[in-house]
Design a protein around this nucleic acid. Structure first.
Lengths: 190, 190
DNA sequence: AACTATTTTGAATGATCATTCAATTATTTG
DNA sequence: CAAATAATTGAATGATCATTCAAAATAGTT
């Protein structure tokens, strides 16, 4: 064997970041070579082709997202409080200068006409919904948990799009409070 | 003058359709030439460059969307009923085989790192929100109308993303009913 | 009919795209 | 240390990209 294989974590971090910010089509392999400092052959040996690298990037992002949500919901005094905190994080992200929404949501819309990648993205978004649903089942019958989880995903998708509008934080918060009354808003009011 | 200028409506219909379905980066000018049957020079003379054609396509789509919503809300017995009907149309669209979400929402996410086009898209999405808000002011004080309009946009954005999941119609409807209780759901229940 | 103004044509351009592969380098194995 | 094995290199490839422009065609004007 030659030099042990390059750091896959490093390249996936860089590739995810590029695909996330610029999208699948606007990110060229040459950009990836430049960002990672690696040569074409290395990346093609490890990931096969651009699609393979993209899938691995999606996986990397999804695992981090699932972990982040799981930690937040586990460590909160209640599931509702944890969900509320996660939502607030999403809203606050949208205020940052380099905001670039959610990698999975962006990919879902960009690759709507690419059945294989679309399926790959949809599966991962469903994993996230399932995670919320599992936590909600601690407090609610499964049917209600499922409805709340779907409603939550609709709102999260909405935030991911609406967040691009400038100075939207207060508007988003008021709207969320009106349509998600089962979250613990009281501590923020007045 | 030569032959009167080609039918701009026709080319914008074709170009919008391509940009909408495949996105800005995945739609090449060669695709547009093939779809319209026109030669490069004609299109470049009329629209300047790809960005110009894209902006004109966005405008074309936006004007049609505003017209469609305005008609629906004007002809309904109440604003709430009109909004409900529009939402149901969006949900039903997501069941079709060739579903491709909303051109503006897709563009907003794809062009997040292109400030000029991002601004162009955001302005048009805000126009749609303003239209809803104006109609809602017939029944509600302006503050409440604005919150309802923003909540509506969040939900519409959510539907536009969630719609890609297969067999999602019933789930979406249940979730919408739970988070938009001010819409006239009763006639559908039981 | 001749002239002018404008549009259309379509081949060509250089840039950038994803991808390949023979040669080189590095590591493990015998 | 030598042989075998595997990873890395980076220049090169053909395809496709957005865009250009000189020439041809068409319509209005005199």
């Amino acid at each position: 064997m030659a030099k042990p294989q390059f750091n896959q974590e490093h390249i996936l971090t860089q590739a995810s970041s590029a695909f996330w910010r610029f999208g699948y089509h606007a990110t060229s392999m040459q950009h990836v070579f430049a960002a990672t400092g690696l040569k074409p052959g290395s990346i093609y040996l490890a990931f096969g082709n651009k699609e393979g690298l993209f899938k691995a990037s999606l996986d990397h992002y999804t695992q981090q997202s699932l972990l982040r949500i799981r930690n937040k919901l586990s460590q909160s005094p209640s599931v509702e409080q944890g969900i509320f905190d996660v939502l607030m994080e999403f809203v606050n992200e949208s205020c940052q200068a380099d905001y670039c929404s959610c990698f999975l949501v962006k990919s879902q819309l960009e690759l709507g006409s690419h059945p294989e990648l679309l399926q790959y993205v949809s599966t991962r978004l469903k994993q996230i919904e399932t995670l919320y649903c599992e936590f909600l089942q601690q407090n609610h019958p499964i049917e209600e948990a499922q409805i709340k989880a779907t409603s939550l995903m609709l709102h999260i998708f909405g935030i991911r799009v609406y967040g691009y509008h400038s100075q939207s934080k207060e508007q988003i918060l008021s709207a969320l409070e009106s349509s998600l009354p089962w979250l613990p808003w009281t501590k923020l009011k007045h």
